[in-house]
Each structure stands twice: as structure tokens, then as C-alpha cells.
Design a protein around this nucleic acid. Sequence first.
DNA 1: GCCAACGTTGGC
DNA 2: GCCAACGTTGGC
Length: 153
Amino acid sequence: MAHWLFKSEPDTFGIDDLAAQPHQTDHWDGVRNYQARNFMRDRMSVGDLGFFYHSNTKEPGIVGIVEIAREAYADHTAFDPEDPHYDPKSDPDNPRWFMVDVKLVRKLDRTITLAELKERAADLGDLPLVRKGNRLSIMPVSDEQWEYILSLE
DNA sequence: GCCAACGTTGGC
DNA sequence: GCCAACGTTGGC
């Protein structure tokens, strides 16, 4: 089973928004980065676990755990001219962008902040999150990194 | 609000 | 194919 990290801005879609969905499940739409797309499309399986990370907020950090509930399928928001993530180059017959469904497993007892993860960057090896200038919105987390980060909770 | 880092676009 | 210009991300 693989592990992942999903970034989202809580002002747009935070963990409490996911918690409010039916079955605490929603699709992860709006990814418009090829590397992040490829992780979803090619490597995510139902049952994989991921961290839910709040970005672009007062205290950025990991706030919860989600589970992949559906494998990648076409991101329909790319087909909607009214949608902020509209991409005319994505064709319904040959979609460019994909999304998975994620289900909330639980919220963490506390936020594991980016600041403390950065303090421990030496222990987190190649985790893109703690590297300068990183903008990747979906990234793989190794088993070791996963356990280590959870142990901080 | 600022701005560094990054990915994408498009002219050549 | 190169690379400057541009738009976006996201920490601070």
C-alpha cells in the first residue's frame, strides 16, 4: 500500500469541508500539474492512505488522514467553461486531467506543522514538502516517512 | 501583501 | 530546441 500527501487551501477546500460531505468522501478535482496527475492516474490504488495538508494558510501543516476511495477518472471540471479549472485542451474523449475520490479516515489530534517538519527535514530525506520552493500538490510519502510523521502526532 | 521558486507558453 | 516572459503557488 502506498502513501501520499494531498495539499489543499483550507479557504477553498479544507478538511472540515471533506468531513461535511456525504460519506465524508469527495473527488479531488482541480489538479493541473502533470507530475501530480501522473501520481493519481498511474500509481494510486483504492485503500492507499494520504495525509491531508493545509497550504497557504496561517499555520500550514498536516491535519488529517484520507483513504483513496476510487481510482483515477476524468476530472470533469476541466470540461466546464464556467469552472475556474477549465482547460479547453482536455477533451472528454481523451481527458488530460484526472481525479481520485478520497474519504476522510480521521482528523489528527493536532496539526503537524510545516515548521516542525522542516526542523526535522534531515529525518525526512527526499520528501518534497520540506524542500525549498516546492510546489508539488500531490506527492508520494514513503512508508518510513509516513510512520515518522505520524509518530509526531 | 511581498516575493522567490517553479511550470508553462510561445516567439524565434 | 532555447529561453524570456508570464502566471501561479505558497511560505512568510
